[in-house]
């Protein structure tokens, strides 16, 4: 690892000043769990880190009206134990629980997970499922993108040079909404996800599907809701057959988005199974495998 400079910002505006100070190749540092690895592989990545981990307003998690705002420097552990998120966005809690191990969850931040935008980032599918918005600041501008818009492709976002992701915001889903997050890795902790699925939904008073949101991670270059899957569900009475069909649609959507890759022969059946399992749990139907929810 090469030598690099370090400055600590006390406020968001100070962070923006540091990040835009000419003569430096700056990089924001929050939990450092990704940055340390990146620096080790590529010492030329930056010559100064701007520590944003101690900016108080970037740690706040608060409810404003019907929205929940999460400061970008909130750690996974902070999110997991936060009563507001546990109540209003349990799917995000479930996703954050699957990140790394305790030490990484204590250090790693939700903003870092989004801004690093790894294809396998565990919080992304849950955030996209919640239709979360990302607030990005530069010294002169403010952008509000959906997380799905923000992430262009693996490790690539719309955040401009010198810009800073300061918070994430989601609207609390209506009551009766259930969410399920499933992660598949090669081991049970410290695992890079092979596939993740996040599903959120609600039935109307007639027992028909009134809301269905479905996202998969590690499956497509851009993280997005799978509209075909969702459309197939809306207005329907949930049945095991419907969930099986949705699983098949998810795999078709994955192939359409990512093409047929070296891993597709495996990912197609695995995603089908995970999709129908997650949706069955959301809509509380018997799982196609016969498992009782």
């Amino acid at each position: 690892m090469e030598r690099f400079g370090y400055v600590r910002a006390a406020t968001i505006s100070e962070a923006l000043t540091f990040l835009n100070q000419p003569g430096y190749k700056n990089r924001p540092l929050a939990g450092s769990t990704d940055l340390v690895l990146l620096l080790r592989r590529n010492p030329d990545l930056c010559d100064r880190v701007v520590d944003i981990s101690l900016i108080p307003e970037m740690h706040t998690i608060e409810k404003t009206g019907n929205d929940v705002i999460i400061g970008a420097s909130a750690s996974f552990s902070e999110i997991i134990s936060n009563p507001i998120i546990r109540e209003t966005g349990p799917i995000l809690v479930e996703a954050c629980k699957t990140v790394g191990a305790t030490q990484i969850r204590n250090m790693g931040t939700i903003g870092g997970n989004v801004a690093n935008a790894a294809a396998c980032a565990d919080s992304l599918p849950a955030l996209v499922c919640l239709d979360a918005m990302a607030r990005v600041l530069t010294p002169s501008e403010e952008f509000n993108w959906t997380v799905s818009e923000l992430v262009i492709s693996p490790n690539k976002t719309r955040i401009p040079a010198g810009g800073l992701l300061v918070s994430l915001r989601y609207t609390i889903p209506p009551s009766g909404t259930r969410g399920v997050f499933l992660k598949l890795g090669r081991r049970n902790a410290m695992a890079i996800s092979r596939l993740t699925v996040a599903a959120l939904g609600r039935l109307d008073e007639n027992g028909r599907i009134a809301d269905a949101r479905f996202v998969t991670g590690s499956a497509a270059p851009q993280i997005c809701r799978f509209k075909d899957v969702e459309t197939s569900l809306l207005g329907q009475v949930p049945t095991p057959a419907l969930m099986l069909a949705a699983g098949k649609l998810a795999t078709e959507e994955m192939i359409r988005l990512s093409g047929y890759r070296w891993s597709s022969e495996y990912k197609v059946p695995a995603l089908a199974a995970m999709t129908s399992r997650a949706l069955s749990r959301v809509f509380q139907v018997r799982e196609p495998s016969g498992e009782v929810v």
Binding site: A273, E287, S289, E291
Partner: peptide, 11 residues
């Protein structure tokens, strides 16, 4: 149950 007829997704 018959292992030859495992339902996908069965544990």
């Amino acid at each position: 149950g018959d292992p030859a007829r495992i339902h996908p997704g069965e544990l």
